[in-house]
Design a binder for these strands. Structure first.
Lengths: 97, 97
DNA sequence: AAATATAGTATCATATTTGATAACTTTTGT
DNA sequence: ACAAAAGTTATCAAATATGATACTATATTT
């Protein structure tokens, strides 16, 4: 029966800090993840593939995949987002709250 | 008394086309101009200068001026807009309509 | 099971945006 | 009238996003 180290307060604190940092980082990027999700939802609800969007915009599906992916933190510019919205027959709406 | 050329239909058509192109171009960039205006309005309503914002973000006022200006068509990325919103103590809100 | 469609990742070239700075103009305060 | 503050424009370097392509993984169809 191996002897395991008993977790102490410093371990708990360290872990809590990491979670807070991850959470803070995620929250800082919330607008990015939000619009990515909306693009995907809209595309799927219209029954379109990434390739369909790519063709309408005049780019490659791989670039659409990159744009949609939450697994990177490229910060798309407005032109890119506006083109995608246009390809959906929709409009980009940006504001401050 | 100088003789002036009488406008004919082709002149009218040409002018109308130019106006439509200008209008179309403006409309295409509407989301850009809209957020620029909102940033300016919010900044002024909080009594902040471009330099105040620049300091909070960690850039120069000239870059803020460029960002705010409707006299260019640079397409800011989300990081830039999010930083400005944060400097205002506000949040960027992006969606599709 | 094989073929096809769809989506995802990596890489490098190219284009675009932001950083940094100087010079200038306009506005505001005294 | 003058100085300071605020804003604008231009330029070039650095950073970052997009274009273009090859390849892989996953899902769907045959």
């Amino acid at each position: 029966m191996p002897i395991t180290k008993r977790p102490d307060f410093s371990d708990f604190k360290k872990k809590a800090l990491q979670n807070q940092e991850v959470k803070k980082e995620y929250e800082a990027l919330e607008p990015l993840f939000k619009i990515k999700k909306q693009l995907i939802v809209a595309r799927l609800s219209k029954g379109l593939t990434q390739d369909d969007i790519a063709k309408k915009i005049g780019t490659s599906k791989t670039n659409i995949s990159r744009l949609e992916s939450p697994n990177n933190s490229y910060m798309p510019n407005l032109a890119t987002l506006m083109k995608y919205a246009d390809a959906l027959g929709m409009k980009l709406n940006i504001g401050l709250t």
